[in-house]
């Protein structure tokens, strides 16, 4: 009897975030039947794909106890580069996409260089990059909005085997990131650096190289996120990506990443982004007063974090009761 109750509460606690998600989906499903269609779920994935991919990149940075505030601006700068090369330069789209990735990589290298080689605070370095990248983007576009040719938009609407391209891109990035984090030496080094940089250094890990790599990954993911945003809007507006860094960090941390390093997974980051987008989409579907959106989304994030942090404590307590010898 006692053991059964223990098992139920353990089960409930282990899957608390999943239960919250099911609760959210169920509520909206009852309120609006069309919410539960496959089409709508694809829609949710398409709309959160950009944030989810950037959040995956952010997770790499957070694992090393760093932070990348510049992702929103990098999304904009890369989009601006693409816009200028396609609209003003008449270059082919494939080349524009290549430029975007190069732009993201470059910003990441600069961030990583100052953080790793000069030992400067990631917050400050990426804050400067936030301003420099946005300023450069505004410079090359002269703050003009740019409307891209329709072929760009087809990237978002084309489907392969019934799955929209942005979702496919998200899946590829997710699987690659997951494999890097779990199956490679680099992945293990990342967690080591995040848990204890001094010990990692002593164990022979080239910490600066690891740091430069994570900011490059973050910059690249930001440029891919920029591509997906562009594909959906087919326009570069001067406020593209503004404030996105907070959404992205929220998604990553909701998915279990810690700002103090050493914790976080690629799947978690995507789940965090999907949760937020599901709430937003659901409120759209039930035609809620739009002014209430931020209130509800904020409260649900609060609830998710509350459940998650208590789960860790309760689980630890339960485990202690059963296996007394386990060290924390």
């Amino acid at each position: 009897m006692r053991a059964a109750r223990w098992n139920v509460s353990k089960l409930g606690l282990t899957y608390a975030p999943a239960l919250l998600y099911i609760g959210v989906v169920g509520t909206f499903g009852i309120l609006s039947p069309s919410f539960l269609s496959i089409e709508n779920f694809l829609n949710i994935f398409v709309q959160c794909s950009a944030v989810a991919i950037v959040a995956i990149g952010m997770t790499f940075v957070l694992l090393t106890a760093g932070i990348d505030l510049s992702v929103g601006s990098i999304m904009f700068l890369c989009s601006a580069i693409a816009g200028v090369s396609v609209v003003r330069g008449d270059l082919p789209i494939s080349l524009a996409l290549l430029f975007m990735v190069i732009g993201g990589l470059f910003c990441g290298v600069v961030n990583g260089y100052f953080i790793a080689r000069k030992g400067m605070a990631p917050f400050i370095v990426t804050l400067s990059m936030l301003f420099v990248a946005r300023g450069s983007g505004l410079w090359i576009t002269q703050t003009r909005a740019m409307n891209l040719p329709d072929t760009f938009r087809q990237l978002a609407t084309t489907r392969v085997l019934g799955i929209p391209v942005p979702v496919l891109v998200l899946a590829i990035v997710l699987i690659t990131a997951h494999l890097i984090l779990t199956r490679t030496v680099f992945g293990r080094q990342l967690y080591a650096v995040g848990n204890n940089p001094v010990a990692a250094e002593r164990a022979g890990i080239d910490v600066p190289m690891v740091l430069i790599a994570v900011y490059m990954i973050s910059g690249t993911c930001a440029s891919i996120g920029g591509m997906l945003t562009l594909a959906q809007l087919a326009a570069v507006s001067p406020n593209l990506g503004q404030g996105r860094e907070l959404d992205v960090i929220a998604a990553a941390v909701l998915g279990g990443a810690s700002l103090f390093g050493g914790r976080g997974t690629a799947f978690g980051a995507v789940l965090g982004a999907v949760l937020v987008e599901t709430v937003r989409n659901g409120m759209n579907m039930v035609d809620a007063n739009p002014y209430v959106y931020p209130v509800i989304i904020g409260l649900i994030i609060f609830a998710a974090v509350f459940l998650d942090s208590n789960r860790h404590r309760q689980l630890a307590r339960l485990r202690k009761r059963k296996i007394r010898t386990e060290a924390s």
Binding site: S32, S34, N40, N43, Q47, A145, N147, R153, A156, Q232, L233, A234, A235, S237, R280, N281, N284, M285, D287, P290
Partner: peptide, 29 residues
């Protein structure tokens, strides 16, 4: 996101006024 959902709830919308041309790209999308 607002227009996308509005079109899902009311697929038969056939009269749209945008308070600024700046919002045409997302509307077209």
């Amino acid at each position: 996101s607002g227009v996308t959902s509005a079109l899902q709830v009311n697929p038969d919308i056939n009269f749209v006024f945008a308070s600024t041309d700046f919002l045409f790209p997302p509307l077209i999308s």
